[in-house]
Design a protein around this nucleic acid. Structure first.
Lengths: 128, 128
DNA sequence: CAGTATCCGTCTCGATACTG
DNA sequence: CAGTATCGAGACGGATACTG
């Protein structure tokens, strides 16, 4: 018995959208900027990341970093010194997303102005 | 004066992650499956979409469709008949995201198994 | 059919304070 | 420095009922 009733889907969700899982992993809130920063600027410490990302709170930054670490996209290295030092770097697996980011960057450069124009031209009601 | 205080960023947010805006637009909740369905299965009516997406509620589907329409990625056509008929189709601008989706699909096919292995291998604590 | 209008629970995020 | 603990606010989604 289902937990709650939902209108039956005609197709399996992941069949219907095969890129769902990877989207959830890579494009959740904050994960893209984190991966970008690590990719572009190399290995960084916790606070460096926090500053570069512009005001993400430590709690959320920790959450996202743990998740990325679990997924194998980011590596964490702890140095037992005083003061303690922790470094985060992107893994080869994470770096392999570069082509995806590049495709996104190219699309953005080529088409984002059209989006702007569409937004200005749009007059209909926006619910929310 | 700032609304709330945040630790100063060392760099401008969009400078820091140029693909932020396009990510917000394309990979928000439900938008990717909607675009995928319209891209793969062509023009569809409201209820067809709802069924194919597997139980999204009309409220949320409307919200997302309006947003996509405003951004110029989806076109809405109203036919004043009885019963009324509304059709949604992806625009050329929306279709141009195909290369991005393709890149994601390829990455997923090539690397998602590595992610699975990383997840299984991960023992550390996951906050949440 | 194609939505809109409400109400409400959940879950995430953010702000703030505190610790090893 | 590198986090953890706690609390509150708000977005988001689900259920249900109603309209043109």
């Amino acid at each position: 018995m289902a937990k709650t009733w939902r209108p039956e889907a005609d197709t399996d969700p992941v069949e219907a959208c095969p890129i769902g899982p990877v989207v959830d992993m890579v494009f959740s809130r904050w994960t893209t900027p984190i991966l970008w920063a690590l990719h572009e600027c190399g290995t960084q410490r916790f606070v460096e990341l926090q500053r570069r990302l512009g005001g993400i709170t430590p709690k959320v930054l920790t959450q996202r970093l743990r998740q990325l670490e679990r997924d194998g996209l980011v590596a964490r290295t702890y140095h037992a010194e005083v003061p303690p030092r922790v470094e985060y770097e992107i893994t080869d697996l994470g770096r392999s997303l570069g082509s995806v980011f590049a495709a996104l960057g190219e699309w953005s450069a080529a088409h984002m102005s059209e989006v702007e124009k569409a937004r200005e031209a749009y007059t209909g009601p926006l619910p929310r």
